[in-house]
Design a protein around this nucleic acid. Sequence first.
DNA 1: TCCTTTCGCGAACGACGTTCGCAAATTAGG
DNA 2: CCTAATTTGCGAACGTCGTTCGCGAAAGGA
Lengths: 222, 222
Amino acid sequence: MSDEVIWVRPEHSAVGRPAERSRAEITAAAIALADRDGLEAVSMRRVAAELGTGAASLYRYVANRDDILDLMADATAAEYVFEPPSGDPVADLTALGVQGLAIMRRHPWLPELVMTRASLGPAGADLLERFLSVLDGHPLAATAKLEAFAMLNAAVAMYAHHEAHADSDYVRRQAAYLARVAADGSHPMLAAAFAATAGPADADRFPALLSRIVAGMLGSSA
Amino acid sequence: MSDEVIWVRPEHSAVGRPAERSRAEITAAAIALADRDGLEAVSMRRVAAELGTGAASLYRYVANRDDILDLMADATAAEYVFEPPSGDPVADLTALGVQGLAIMRRHPWLPELVMTRASLGPAGADLLERFLSVLDGHPLAATAKLEAFAMLNAAVAMYAHHEAHADSDYVRRQAAYLARVAADGSHPMLAAAFAATAGPADADRFPALLSRIVAGMLGSSA
DNA sequence: TCCTTTCGCGAACGACGTTCGCAAATTAGG
DNA sequence: CCTAATTTGCGAACGTCGTTCGCGAAAGGA
């Protein structure tokens, strides 16, 4: 029953007792939970509790927990809105990435999902279609375009992930350790970089960073 | 006791009953386990079993499971060997990334670790120092250099992660779904890309991809 | 009405991370 | 040598997790 991806499995049967809930409701509950308490709060029991039902009931809608994660990821992919392309591939792909960052800011758990599972459902396929159509006619091998898609997603996810965890205890401990290493004299470059970074962070550097990366991937600079 | 990162906590006490094992042994056992059975096999109980001891004993060496993951990650960072720089930053950073890919090919679980918790221990600090020294004198803000470091690691991890899971059941199911979507006519670009990719994969495209990305990040093309 | 099919879900299983408390092992001080 | 102080090893237990099983309840078609 589940040797196929969830998107091709029928949601409800036409006969028998009708279902009281839907995949969409489960997805919404899981996303609400994750937005509030993080990804590890998305357990079968807690999603079920969010819906006022029993944990075992979820298995009527979903083969396992990973299916729920796939539903969540694809639901966020559906949040993209596609403006008419400008004709400049670098600008259009950068805009796509910037929009992705905005989505990930709404869902701080999304970067982890994108980085570790990279699954594409219907909305993910639409996104990829859009990406490829921006690149239509561009002299780059199909494989390279697909790599670029993966790379763009990874770059956005990486940035969003860092941003979302910038003030966690874990990162603070980590930074304290690096500062200590920098202070002991054995890592002069690290010390210099730390000193230069000490000031307040300025405006959103992401679009510039991303467009450099995109330009690099599309350009023939190597 | 554990409001500090593991690298600054003393490993053994001078007095009292001497410890029978060391962090290094635990790290080696965990890495062996992960190399053999994957990251999720690295549980307290199984690492302990690998060492012929009890699970609770590990907490004398480590505050929690995440500490073990940090030890593992830093142990792999120690596998880098730093050749004398050539003077060309793009080439030197690309070489660093290519070496990182080789390390990740030896440890297929490493990409996931690098992507989800970017933690730097002593060997990680050495790696970052090397990265920054290659970029010494380069006209790029310190923040941008640190972003570039994170981005390089992410790119390498992403590529290695895809490579390592390319023939998992999960990816096969995923590819079958995308092929089905491509076949139904609603995603022409996807279909075209699939057709163009059907042939056998040629040689290792990674150095070229990576050097384009690095050049993009370092260049002033935006 | 009854039969077939599906659904809801309590109960249970095994594995997980982590804590507690105590016995064993060692060193420091007398 | 003995004792006190200190640290280690770890069995047992707690709460949570994903998942399975089996059964009673609910609906539609004959």
